[in-house]
Amino acid sequence: MQYIIVGLGGQGILFASRVLGEIAIKRGENVIGSEVHGMAQRGGSVISHFKVGSYKSPLISAGDADVLLAFDQNEAIRNLHFLKNGGYGIINVHKMEVFQNESLKKYLTKRNISTFLLKGYEILNEHMKGNYLFLNVLILGAMGALNLGGISFDEVEDAVSKLSPAKFLDDNMKALDLGKMATHES
C-alpha cells in the first residue's frame, strides 16, 4: 500500500505519516516513507511518501500510489500523477468549482480515480472555531471512515489518541468524528 500526502508547509502533514506509521507497527507491518523538513516547510509545497510492505526505497514513483491525502486542492492536482489507475484521493477543497474543469474530469475518469472532496475549512470554521490545525486529523477521520488502504476508523482513532499531546486529545477526537461525518453526508 502506497500513500502520497501533500499540502503546504505548516499544515501538519508530518503528523499524518506518523499516524500511518503507528497503525502499521501495531499490525506488525514494515513501513518506509519520506518526509520534508527544512526550507520547503516554510509555507511551500510539501510532500510525504509512505509505503507499507516490503519496500526498500522511501520514494513512490509516479503512477504507483494507491491513496492520495491532499491538504490543499492545488497541491492535490499538481500531484495527481502519483496515483495509479483506480487510485483514491481525499482532497481538502476551498474552491469547489475548480473540479468542474473538463480536462481534470477527463483525467480522473480515464484513470478511474475516485475522489472525496472534503470542505475542510468550512467544517473547521463551523465546528472548531476556525482552528485549521485540526485539518490533518479531520482528513485522517475521513480516511478511516472510507476504509482507505484497508485501515479502519478504529485503528485511526487508536493511533491518533496514542500520538496526541494530552491538551489536544479531545479536540482531535472531535475532528476525527467530523471527518467521519463528512463522509456520511456526501
Binding site: L8, G9, G10, M39, A40, Q41, R42, G43, G44, S45, N74, E75, I77, R78, V98, N101, L104
Partner: peptide, 11 residues
C-alpha cells in the same frame, strides 16, 4: 487552472 508549486515564504 494556473496551478504552480508554492514557493516557501516567511510565515
Amino acid at each position: 487552472l494556473k496551478i504552480t508549486p508554492k514557493p516557501p515564504m516567511l510565515c
